[in-house]
Write a protein that binds this DNA or RNA. Structure first.
Length: 558
DNA sequence: CGACTTTGACCGGCGC
DNA sequence: GCGCCGGTCAAAGTCG
């Protein structure tokens, strides 16, 4: 590629020279000046090309590193799957009685970050059958991350019912019932016999993952197919809340609620409930994995925080334990909160900016918001946003995406951080957690937050989660801009701006949210169009719009 | 004609 | 027990 470019530049040079020759000698001086100018320009261009080439190589190296990490993780994942399969078979053979408890315990022990794929026993078997790792082309982010609860407190039993992959239990009930499970046709006239609730046996403990994205479009494209089945105007929010059901599989229990933030209409709150029990399109794996991973983190966080002798008060931090190679890594999330009665735990992935200078003066956790929506359930906020203004949040340097200018918002996607640093962060984090638990402090020191953030972002699992989240938002957008002719938020070609994103699994769907998010995040220069266009398409009212609503063009295209 | 959206009605949970 | 409210259903309408 670079050679070609060099050739072309040389050709252009020659052509220019010839052109100069052809033009005669009447204004030689002029042409000479022009020629020198052009030469300088060419030199500059060549120099720039060299830089680009270097950058290319760096990015390639970085990509290779990511791929290596991916493959090693995948290998580990399959090993673990093998181990668990063996153990489960031994348990199953040992316990031939129809006693469910051991299996349920197993399920509760395993909180799988399925990355868009359900980790049901069926799929595990499938995965085992095909011993070769899934090809990336078909599976996309087929990488599975696992979380194993090592701390089984008294609350863990209860937490097992809020397994973030409820269809695991669902699958169990289905298998044991020995009949095909129909989601919305309960045999009894009881209407609310929701599949999920039946399967979970504890409907009040459904884990929800709420994703807050700055988005001008009616819905956020997560790559999945959704069918709208209802709309309500919730009290206290003038914006209607839309209810969607996953239609990829008729038995899929996943539902999502889409609602605008009443304080900031540009913020779209998408709440996911349940886990897909079917293979997802590549484009959908990212968000699904993010939500399931976040739900897993919440589960682990609430189980660990349950051991807190004083969990009744709203803590400003939540300890998450992510495992890396079955080693627990505590992750401390500042600003997360847990309510005393977590009847419906919710993880909030805040992909918006905290302090927005223009359109979003309110933060999710700001008092007006919390007044509007009192934390009825346990909520955990994973704030991926920069604490500073989002005017210039993203920069690529050495293949590393620094989202945000300061340390708080700096997300290191690459594996540039050494294990030493991870360990350091881990130790920092540990001591910090000790301080947090002993002092029960409500105001975190900046360096503490920084350390926590570093610890979080240094964790490969969290990186994966984050990468998945941002991939669903960013990576999709790049292709989406190409594929869709939709008017808003197509100012930025992500692949041009962030070449590495082209290597991420992406979809042909148009994601106006994605580009919108980055339009606003990247620079204020590109946000005018998206906002102007987006204001027309905001679902403030139940406007019927097959043509205007990108839901059809985005969510329903695989 | 099938898939999807819209929208009013219905149901169950929860608080008073 | 009653009313409110969130969530869901299902008939009707719309669109390609």
């Amino acid at each position: 590629m670079e050679v070609d470019q060099r050739k072309t530049s040389q050709q252009i040079k020659k052509e220019d020279k010839e052109e100069n020759r052809h033009h005669g000698e009447e204004d030689d001086c002029k042409q000479e000046v022009v020629f020198h100018k052009d030469e300088k320009q060419f030199e500059l261009t060549i120099a720039e090309m060299g830089e680009v080439r270097e950058e290319n190589q760096r990015l390639r190296l970085h990509l290779d590193q990511i791929m290596k990490d991916y493959q090693t993780l995948q290998k580990k994942f399959h090993d673990i799957l093998h181990q668990q399969q063996e153990t489960s078979t031994t348990v199953a053979t040992a316990l031939t009685k129809p006693n469910e408890q051991p299996r349920i315990n197993d399920e509760s022990d395993l909180v799988s970050l399925s990355l868009g794929r359900k980790s049901s026993p069926e799929l595990v078997k499938k995965d085992k059958r095909c011993t070769t790792p899934p090809t990336k082309s078909s599976e996309g982010l087929g990488l599975g991350l696992e979380y194993c609860k090592f701390e089984l407190s008294s609350t863990t039993q209860a937490e097992s019912s809020i397994n973030p992959s409820p269809d695991n239990s669902l699958e169990e009930t289905k298998d044991e019932a020995g009949e095909t499970w129909t989601p919305q046709k309960p045999p009894t006239p009881k209407r609310s016999g929701d599949d999920q609730e039946v399967s979970q046996q504890n409907p009040t403990k459904k884990t929800r993952v709420s994703v807050r994205v700055r988005c001008d479009t009616p819905t956020m494209n997560d790559g999945c197919q959704w069918r709208k089945y209802g709309q309500k105007i919730a009290k206290g929010n003038p914006c209607p809340r839309a209810y969607y059901r996953c239609t990829v599989s008729p038995t899929c229990p996943v539902r999502k609620q889409v609602q605008r933030c009443p304080q900031d209409m540009s913020i779209l709150i998408t709440t996911y409930e349940g886990t897909h029990n079917h293979p997802l399109p590549v484009s959908a794996t990212a968000m699904a994995s993010t939500t399931s991973a976040a739900a897993s983190m919440l589960t682990s966080g609430s189980s660990t925080s349950g051991s807190n002798p004083n969990p009744s008060t709203t803590s400003h931090g939540l300890n998450f334990y992510l495992n890396e190679n079955l080693k627990l890594k505590p992750i401390y999330l500042p600003h997360s909160s847990i309510s005393p009665s977590p009847s419906c735990p919710t993880v909030t992935l805040d992909l918006t900016s905290n302090t927005l200078s223009t359109s979003s003066p309110y933060n999710y956790r700001s008092p007006p918001m919390t007044n509007t929506f009192p934390p009825r359930y346990s909520t955990t906020n994973l704030n991926f946003s920069s604490l500073e203004s989002n005017a210039l949040p993203i920069s690529w340097s050495n293949g590393t995406l620094n989202y945000g200018k300061n340390q708080m918002g700096s997300l290191n996607f690459g594996s540039t951080q050494t294990q030493e640093n991870i360990y350091h962060s881990y130790m920092q984090n540990k001591s910090m957690m000790a301080n947090a638990t002993t002092n029960n402090q409500h105001s975190l020191q900046p360096d503490t937050i920084e350390a926590a953030t570093r610890a979080i972002t240094s964790d490969p699992n969290f990186q994966s989660v984050l990468q998945a989240a941002l991939t669903s938002i960013i990576g999709v957008g790049g292709i989406g801009v190409q594929g869709g002719g939709e008017k808003s938020c197509q100012n930025v070609k992500m692949e041009d701006t962030f070449p590495v994103f082209s290597s991420f699994p992406s979809t042909s769907n148009t994601n106006k949210c994605s580009s919108s998010f980055f339009n606003k995040s990247m620079a204020a220069t590109t946000m005018t169009n998206s906002q102007a266009a987006g204001s027309n398409s905001l679902p403030f009212s139940s406007s019927r719009s097959k043509s205007t609503s990108p839901e059809n063009s985005r969510d329903h295209v695989v």
